[in-house]
Amino acid sequence: MISCTEFIPAYSELFKFLEAQGGKEAVVKFWESLSDEFLTNLRDLAATRGLAGCFEYWSHTLREEAADFRMTLDEKNGTFEIDMRHCPSRGRLNESKHIEPYEHYCEHCDVLYRRVLEPFGFKFNIDLSTCKDATCKLTVEKSLPNKKSTVTGS
């Protein structure tokens, strides 16, 4: 048994293995499949409870992963944010001196969660510019009827 506490390095090795088989395209295909078949809990929560469902989902997973984060749900303004101050997954990979993390490791979060949330009409964004330092910022926005548009017409 690979312990769940040892899963992340195995996950990273799986991405490397897939890339060796069929390039990055093979890795992205796996992420898409995992999103469709495995993230049913997030999909169900987002479908029934919207942004509050996102809050519920990540409250559970990030606590179990012992992450260092601040999560904000603002239902009035239709926004949900995770400010990840130390990602436990990337952090563990960085700490493991005897293995090299998969080059595009952090991109799996973008593919997996975008694919679940955008079909519900949410605007999904994740800033991975500092992800190699185990920090990132995820934002999900809902279109509200009275929300001012940020797009200006001519």
Binding site: A66, F69, R70, E75, K76
Partner: peptide
């Protein structure tokens, strides 16, 4: 409708 959860790595 405002909820905040702030956790340190050592909390769990």
């Amino acid at each position: 409708g405002l909820r905040i959860l702030d956790c340190k790595a050592t909390d769990h």
